[in-house]
Computed example of a mutant assay.
Amino acid sequence: MSVVVAARISRSFGATRVLDGVDLTVAKGEVVALLGGSGSGKSTLLRILAGLDPEAGGESTVPARRAVVFQEHRLLPWKRVVDNVGLGIRDPGARSADALAEVGLADRARAWPAELSGGQAQRVAFARALAREPEVLLLDEPFGALDALTRLRMQELFGRLRARHGFAALLVTHDVDEALLLSDRALVLAGGRIAAEVPVGLPYPRVPDAPGFARLRRRLLDLLGVPLAAGAG
């Protein structure tokens, strides 16, 4: 059963047509990665599915129980961490505390956002999403601003949370390895449409040296028009 269905999604900015009839689905519990070159419309599509762009054409069905995590954590600096997690939730107390515990920040509930590291702030953003008990997460480069080690830790955290909660997710990323580590399918957006679909089909948990990983990496890089370095893969 699909929890996200998008049909004929289109969006233009002036004379530039960024999306030109995009169709995609995300099944219940499935993680779909969306890849594409800079300016291909990945983030535009995600914003449309999140209901943040009323000017778009086409039709989409996305559960009301959804949450969005952006590359920037977007925490309100004048609210403590626990209050940021509970924004917009009726009776948020226990749900906020539980979500912070799940991301390993129970002891930072009363901290101010300015007192957090970048990785901690992004974990708070994930806690805020979890507190909404979403059927689907819409993720726009959620680890893109983090250093390499913190990014790996956040990818591992995402995998644990997905296994525990069973939410579906659409993950916008520019990182091919991240797409292969976290998703069940990878879609390539080009020319305003989904140009290719690559089932990942590797068992979890995944590591880049797992059998089949390098072959899938080569395929995605080829679809994205990225030449493989000599001796790589």
Results as ranks from 00 to 15, higher is better:
Arg74His: 13
Arg217Ile: 00
Ala190Ser: 15
Gly231Val: 08
Arg160Leu: 14
Glu178Trp: 05
Arg164Ile: 01
Gly166Pro: 09
Arg110Thr: 13
Glu197Val: 15
Leu146Ala: 05
Val200Phe: 00
Val18Glu: 10
Pro203Asp: 10
Ser60Ala: 14
Leu182Ser: 07
Leu149Ile: 13
Asp23Met: 11
Arg132His: 08
Val103Ile: 11
Ala121Cys: 01
Gly118Cys: 12
Leu171Cys: 01
Asp91Tyr: 07
Arg185Gln: 14
Asp209Met: 03
Asp147Cys: 12
Ser117Tyr: 04
Phe70Asp: 07
Val136Cys: 06
Val18Leu: 09
Gly93His: 15
Phe126Asp: 01
Val18Thr: 09
Lys42Val: 13
Gln120Ala: 09
Arg193Pro: 01
Val3Ser: 02
Leu52Met: 12
Val198Trp: 08
Leu116Thr: 03
Leu100Asn: 04
Arg206Pro: 10
Val3Phe: 00
Ala196Pro: 03
Arg95Tyr: 04
Pro211Met: 10
Lys42Gln: 11
Asp175Glu: 08
Pro113His: 07
Arg110Pro: 01
Leu34Asn: 01
Val176Ser: 02
Ser12Trp: 02
Arg132Gln: 11
Gly159Pro: 02
Leu161Ala: 14
Ala109Val: 08
Val5Cys: 05
Phe167Val: 10
Gly37Gln: 03
Lys28Asp: 15
Phe70Ser: 12
Val200Trp: 06
Arg80Pro: 01
Leu130Asp: 09
Arg128Thr: 01
Val31Trp: 15
Leu46Thr: 06
Leu116His: 03
Val103Arg: 10
Ala125Arg: 04
Leu224Gly: 00
Val85Asp: 00
Leu161Val: 13
Ala195Thr: 03
Glu133Pro: 04
Arg217Ser: 05
Ser96Tyr: 13
Glu55His: 10
Ala168Pro: 09
Gly88Gln: 12
Ser96Phe: 12
Met1Arg: 15
Ile48Cys: 11
Pro113Arg: 03
Phe143Val: 01
Asp23Ser: 14
Phe158Trp: 10
Arg90Glu: 15
Asp91Asn: 15
Ala168Cys: 08
Ala111Trp: 00
Arg80Phe: 02
Tyr204Met: 10
Gly192Tyr: 06
Ser43Glu: 05
Arg193Met: 06
Pro92Leu: 02
Pro211Trp: 05
Ile48Gln: 07
Leu130Gly: 11
